[in-house]
Computed example of a mutant assay.
Amino acid sequence: MSARIEVVLFGPEGRGSFNEAGNAGAGRARDAGHGVTVTWIADPAPEARAIALLALCERGADLIVAHGGQGDYPVSIAAQRFARQRFVVTQGSVRAQNVATYDALQEQSAFLAGVLAAHVSQTGVVGHMSGEKVPPGLKGRAAFLDGVRSAETGVRALTTFCGSQHDPRRAFDTFAAQQRAGADVIFAMIDGGRDGAIAACRELGIRQIGNVLDWTVRAPDVFLASAIADSGRCVERAIADFRRDAVPFGGAVTFGLAERDVVRLALARDVGHAARAQVEAWGSKLIDGTVRPGLQYEGEEFPVAA
């Protein structure tokens, strides 16, 4: 009998590259013969997400895969109330005996994005923006800023969280504010709000570094690079592991730059040889462990656009 597996995506249905990756991973698992159902939870409030997940637990499933750090809080609540229910959180940090995390190390590609931004900026100012302050976003931000610092080019970095992964207007306004402050390259870790960030780049004449998927293919006029961390591969792998009784509940599975189909920095064609060489050199150090991205940032934050 096929296992009943629920994949939970947080955000407006059908929007955002992060959820696109998760949905694609669920689709590949379904195509491989696994019994996978996808459920979308659109409400952005953590409490509402927890209530929706608890309702899903009441209906019963052999495995619930919560996609993204937004799943940390609802799974932490549900895992206590449903001790026999088994969960996976992708890009998560929750720890419990009935929960496993599967993590594409976004911080490694984000670090390389910082190195690249520092080497290509013409203004001496680069930016970072994201939406919600969930652990993967905080780690990615810290790693990007660590990459900027490590490049030792003297470039200054701005950083902010606009409060929503899915709001194009907030993304546009935040990009515009950072551009007015001098940023000519901005690393954006957002989802449904990506269209606003792209529109800002085209209107203001600045370049963007994307994440999760390869944005240099989708909008080559805008994207200088993309810090790929294909979390959909985590969904796919977790489901395959579950079917062979290999999920390390209470533990974690990680994928880094050594798995290039999961984690890498994709570069646009117009990135010069010198900058490419820097990315290659730092990437080798990350793979062999001689460099590890910083995962905490306690410095100043750029004011959020009104």
Score class of each variant (00 low, 15 high):
Arg276His: 13
Arg244Ser: 08
Arg260Pro: 12
Ala281Gln: 12
Gly256Asn: 13
Pro293Ile: 14
Ala246Leu: 06
Ala258Lys: 06
Arg260Glu: 15
Lys285His: 15
Val262Trp: 06
Gly283Trp: 15
Leu267Ser: 03
Gly294Ile: 10
Val247Gly: 07
Val291His: 11
Ala246Phe: 04
Ala275Cys: 07
Glu259Tyr: 11
Trp282Leu: 10
Val271Thr: 02
Glu280Gly: 08
Asp288Gln: 02
Gly256His: 14
Gly294Ala: 05
Ile287Thr: 09
Asp288Phe: 15
Thr254Gly: 06
Phe249Asp: 00
Phe255Glu: 01
Gly294Tyr: 03
Phe255Ile: 02
Arg243Val: 07
Asp270Thr: 01
Pro293Arg: 09
Ala252Cys: 09
Thr290Asn: 01
Val291Cys: 02
Val253Cys: 12
Val247Pro: 02
Val263Phe: 14
Val253His: 09
Leu257Gly: 01
Gly272Leu: 10
Asp261Gly: 07
Asp270Val: 00
Ala281Lys: 13
Trp282Pro: 00
Val247Ala: 12
Ala246Asn: 01
Val262Ile: 13
Arg269Asp: 15
Asp245Met: 02
Val253Lys: 13
Phe255Trp: 05
Arg260Ala: 14
Pro248Phe: 00
Ala258Val: 06
Ala252Asp: 03
His273Ile: 15
Glu259Asp: 15
Leu286Tyr: 15
Ala281Tyr: 11
Thr290Arg: 11
Trp282Gln: 05
Asp261Phe: 02
Arg292Trp: 11
Ala268Asp: 13
Gly272Asp: 15
Ala274Arg: 13
Ala246Met: 03
Arg264Met: 12
Asp288Ala: 10
Gly289Gln: 05
Leu265Asp: 04
Ala246Asp: 01
Ala258Arg: 11
Ile287Met: 14
Glu259Thr: 04
Arg264Asn: 04
Gln278Met: 15
Ala268Gln: 06
Arg276Lys: 13
Arg244Pro: 03
Arg244Thr: 13
Val279Ala: 03
Arg264Pro: 02
Val263Glu: 10
Val279Ser: 10
Ala268Met: 04
Ala277Met: 14
Pro293Gly: 11
Ala268Cys: 12
Ala266Glu: 10
Val263Arg: 02
Arg276Gln: 12
Gly283Cys: 03
Glu280Tyr: 15
Val271Gly: 06
Phe249Pro: 00
Val291Gln: 11
Ala281Pro: 05
Leu267Gln: 04
Asp270Lys: 08
Val263Trp: 12
Phe255Thr: 00
Gly283Arg: 01
Ile287Ala: 14
Gly256Asp: 05
Leu286Ser: 06
Arg276Ser: 11
Glu280His: 15
Val253Leu: 06
Gly294Val: 13
Arg244Lys: 04
Ala246Cys: 08
Lys285Gly: 06
Ala252Gln: 05
